[in-house]
């Protein structure tokens, strides 16, 4: 419980997290008004906000040597990593819910399932950030996959609906579990 509180404090006192969430909400309002239907807006550019959210939650740990402070205060790495993912989910769920609600208010249509998609994607981005430990390479990789390669593959390959960027919860959940396990393994075994 102490660790979850510490991780929540970390996220809450990082200005970049606040800017990302508020920026995502602002873009939601803009795009929900512009897009032909709310799904186009939600399953489109808005995802970038949640990718950034998950990614900087992970990589900020490696800036300014903070990881040393974290692991000296909380050396049980598995527990610490679980607390990190838990804190991220606690922050992401309301952020995603507000995003979907804003979309509904502006466009008049409802696409509640998108909130789950946002949460899964955020946790996947966190795992990628834990693996790379660096922001920009991971960001380029995630954006290039979710916005360029993924959409290109979607109509062209038969297995496209089972890929990482599927909005289907039953596909996204196993991907999220696999990514988080890989992130956990790396966090547990690597030299900090």
């Amino acid at each position: 419980m102490n660790l979850l509180r510490a991780e929540l404090l970390k996220l809450a006192t990082l200005p970049a997290i606040r800017f990302t969430v508020i920026g995502t909400w602002a873009v939601t309002v803009l795009l929900s008004a512009a897009a032909p239907d709310v799904s186009t807006a939600l399953y489109g550019p808005l995802l970038a906000g949640f990718l950034i959210l998950g990614l900087i939650a992970a990589t900020s740990e490696y800036q300014g040597g903070q990881i040393r402070t974290t692991l000296v205060a909380a050396p049980r790495r598995v527990t610490t990593y679980v607390a990190k993912v838990g804190a991220l989910v606690v922050i992401t769920l309301p952020a995603a819910a507000v995003t979907v609600a804003l979309g509904t208010i502006v466009s008049g249509e409802s696409e509640a399932k998108a909130a789950g998609y946002f949460a899964f994607t955020t946790v996947i981005a966190h795992a990628v950030g834990s693996l790379t430990r660096r922001t920009l390479p991971a960001l380029v990789g995630l954006l290039a996959y979710y916005f360029i390669v993924g959409p290109l593959l979607q109509p062209r390959v038969p297995f496209a609906k089972y890929l990482l960027d599927s909005p289907d919860w039953f596909v996204a959940l196993p991907w999220t579990a696999v990514a988080t396990s890989l992130g956990l393994l790396a966090f547990r075994s690597r030299d900090a």
């Binding site: 990082l14 300014g64 040597g65 903070q66 000296v72």
Partner: peptide
Amino acid sequence: AVLEGSGAHRSR
């Protein structure tokens, strides 16, 4: 423990 630097994120 104090290793090199502050061990703190710059924007906090």
